[in-house]
Amino acid sequence: MAEILTWEQITQRFQGEWLLIVEAELDEQMGIIQGQVLAHSSNQDDIYNALPLRQGRSASIEYVGEMPEDLAFILSYEFTSHLPTSAIGKPSLS
Rank of each mutant, 00 (worst) to 15 (best):
M1Q: 14
M1A: 12
E3F: 00
I4W: 00
I4N: 06
I4Y: 03
I4K: 15
L5H: 02
L5M: 12
L5N: 01
T6W: 02
Q9I: 06
I10E: 01
I10N: 06
R13E: 12
F14K: 10
F14L: 09
F14S: 08
Q15P: 04
G16L: 03
W18H: 13
W18K: 03
W18E: 12
L19R: 09
L20G: 05
L20Q: 08
L20R: 04
L20E: 09
V22N: 11
E23K: 07
E23N: 15
E23F: 13
A24C: 15
E25W: 02
E25Y: 05
L26E: 14
L26M: 14
L26W: 10
D27M: 09
E28R: 11
E28L: 13
M30W: 14
G31T: 06
G31W: 05
I32A: 09
I33C: 05
Q34M: 08
Q34R: 15
G35L: 02
V37Y: 03
L38D: 06
A39E: 12
A39N: 06
S41H: 09
S41L: 09
S42F: 00
S42Q: 08
Q44T: 05
D45P: 01
D45S: 11
I47N: 05
I47K: 05
Y48V: 05
Y48N: 01
N49G: 04
A50T: 07
L51T: 15
P52G: 06
P52M: 01
L53R: 13
L53V: 06
R54D: 02
R54W: 00
R54N: 09
G56K: 05
G56S: 01
G56W: 00
R57M: 08
R57A: 07
S58A: 07
A59H: 14
A59Q: 00
S60M: 00
E62P: 00
E62M: 12
E62W: 01
E62F: 00
E62N: 04
E62S: 10
Y63H: 07
Y63N: 05
G65Q: 03
E66T: 13
E66L: 14
E66Y: 11
E66S: 11
M67N: 01
M67V: 11
M67A: 13
P68M: 04
P68H: 10
P68V: 03
P68G: 08
E69N: 13
E69L: 10
E69Q: 10
E69K: 13
D70C: 02
D70L: 13
L71K: 14
L71R: 10
F73V: 03
I74W: 03
L75N: 14
L75T: 13
S76R: 10
Y77C: 02
Y77G: 02
Y77T: 15
Y77D: 11
Y77N: 11
E78S: 06
E78M: 04
E78N: 07
F79G: 00
F79M: 01
S81Y: 02
H82R: 08
H82Y: 09
H82I: 02
L83S: 10
P84W: 01
T85R: 07
T85L: 11
A87T: 03
A87V: 08
A87Y: 04
A87E: 12
A87I: 01
A87F: 07
I88E: 09
G89L: 04
K90F: 08
K90H: 14
K90Y: 11
P91H: 13
S92C: 14
S92R: 15
